[in-house]
Design a protein around this nucleic acid. Sequence first.
DNA 1: TTGTAAGCGTTATCAT
DNA 2: ATGATAACGCTTACAA
Lengths: 345, 345
Amino acid sequence: MNDVATHAGVSLGTVSNVLNRPSQVRPELIARVRSSIAELGFSRNNAARSLAAGHSRTVGFVMVDLTNSYFVDMARGAEEVLREAEMFLVLANSDIKESTQIDYLDHFTQEQAAGILLTPVGGHLDGMEHARSHGRPVVIVDNDPHQTDSCSVSTDNVQSGFLAAQHLIDIGRKRLAFAGGPRSYPAIADRLAGARAAVDKAEGVTLEYIGSDEVQAPQGLVIGHDLAERDRRSLPDGIIAAADLLALGLLQGLISRSNIRFPDDLALIACDDNRSAYDSLVPISTVELPGVEMGRASAQLLLEEIRSPDQHTHRRVILEPRLVARESTIGRPRMGAERDVARPA
Amino acid sequence: MNDVATHAGVSLGTVSNVLNRPSQVRPELIARVRSSIAELGFSRNNAARSLAAGHSRTVGFVMVDLTNSYFVDMARGAEEVLREAEMFLVLANSDIKESTQIDYLDHFTQEQAAGILLTPVGGHLDGMEHARSHGRPVVIVDNDPHQTDSCSVSTDNVQSGFLAAQHLIDIGRKRLAFAGGPRSYPAIADRLAGARAAVDKAEGVTLEYIGSDEVQAPQGLVIGHDLAERDRRSLPDGIIAAADLLALGLLQGLISRSNIRFPDDLALIACDDNRSAYDSLVPISTVELPGVEMGRASAQLLLEEIRSPDQHTHRRVILEPRLVARESTIGRPRMGAERDVARPA
DNA sequence: TTGTAAGCGTTATCAT
DNA sequence: ATGATAACGCTTACAA
């Protein structure tokens, strides 16, 4: 920047002003400085900026699972609002390891990050306090810690389960099942509770619980295979899967080992939407989590705290999920002359 | 750090030495300083470190596609070797947008990143030169620019296609098809060329090309549906899919609309492994890209250039893919008494 | 409106 | 082995 000043024949301060407060500089000088910058190929030094300013223009996002589109959507949402604020979002993969999460939290703290977004591994907030105590605002995402001195943005999992079950009830299903576990995981427990609430509210509808120790595709496949063995009368006519990969596996397990048709014989709906799983066979209905909106909301809360740390008061934002009905519950859109899917014979 | 020095009753320089060169400090003082650090809850300021040192200890990875496990594997591999070197890896999502890629490249440059890893969007290297000219080492990943002043790490796509086709030939398939496009995409063209090479080398084996404008699941589904319409004699007995999601769609399209059995009637193998797609139905054979190894290799090249910028000479590393035979080509492992899969009637 | 100069918290180079 | 001290390149008063 010194070189630029010399080259443009102005002082260091003026160059800084051109960069940060151009309105306070004579147009003529602005032009001169700008052309010097271009000519010299000058690039600002953020280390120096951060040191002088006391914080960087970077927000760090410590993420649990990069391969899940839900989280990537959050990153997109957050990036969008940060970009408007002329800040950058960088990601760190905690890879579901608590110690890695702490490492990155510390790293962003040392980097003087403007703020930190955190999807806590298994709800663990360790390391967050350290970041806060060093002046780094933190927003908890996809997790509602109920009790904490940070803002948080999460989704209403009870509502997810409720919407899913209600949808099945609305299309006339009576014998529902909720598939997925473990129930010790709050998100799962909440969804189950929501489903139960919807069922209890309805007349003559039952809810069966089918557990699993994870909610990935393989567990779904196993459940699907098990269901395929059942005699038809004991089969549920509507299933709520705790997660979409589980639903995907379940669907495939059932289709490959039975003649059960979706949604005619069985309607299937998932909670949570990892889009990568849906481009196939029978598009699965889902209660979609508002990933992008969550990202936006968290970035906004973060910006608020960054800009006015004093008058800022923490908030817990809970966003509502949205029902997306697809073929697995409402069947094919009636247009065109395509053959039915999932009807092998 | 000044506070620590005062608190421990030593000089600033000594604190710095305890942190960076403890071997040159008397054990007694080390202990004293360390306990002061703990007591004061001191956290280093990386902005200051980077400013003084001329570079940070952070490597930036500008990634095209976060939701693909292939790239996330690279991040894991790179992270592993960087961690040993006491450096950090942070990720930026270019989201397949060239302008975003450039933005992040500039950002990491300004941040004085120790180095940059780049999976170029559509092979575009714009912005890289700028980073280099400002002293930031860059390693190109998953792309072989043949001509450039950077190290690069890529996979041998021709070999991918070759291995896939050879595997089908080895298990006795004669009428092969290669599915996927567009051929203007180098990775696809190379895989096709490799497949062709294997076919040409074999006796009495033919290769059909089935194009598509993308290699995602929906295109696979369409191809699968089309194939289901064919009369059985004109059907290939072995298919190489240009990418795994394409293969997944293809498999599902075929299973849902025909009685074709895998691998009995048709053997299916994919190039490229996005693991998220494989936990289902018929596990699909694939020619796996060595994501983790690529990440490790790129980080190593980067470290080399970071540590000795002068005597460093650029290298192009090309890693070999690996055949992973699964059920879609070699059938079920013969153990246990499980029913056959994919045999609806 | 523009220039001057004092930090920001380290690293690294000197003496000691 | 330790203590001073000069950069590092910017931001931000404050002075002109």
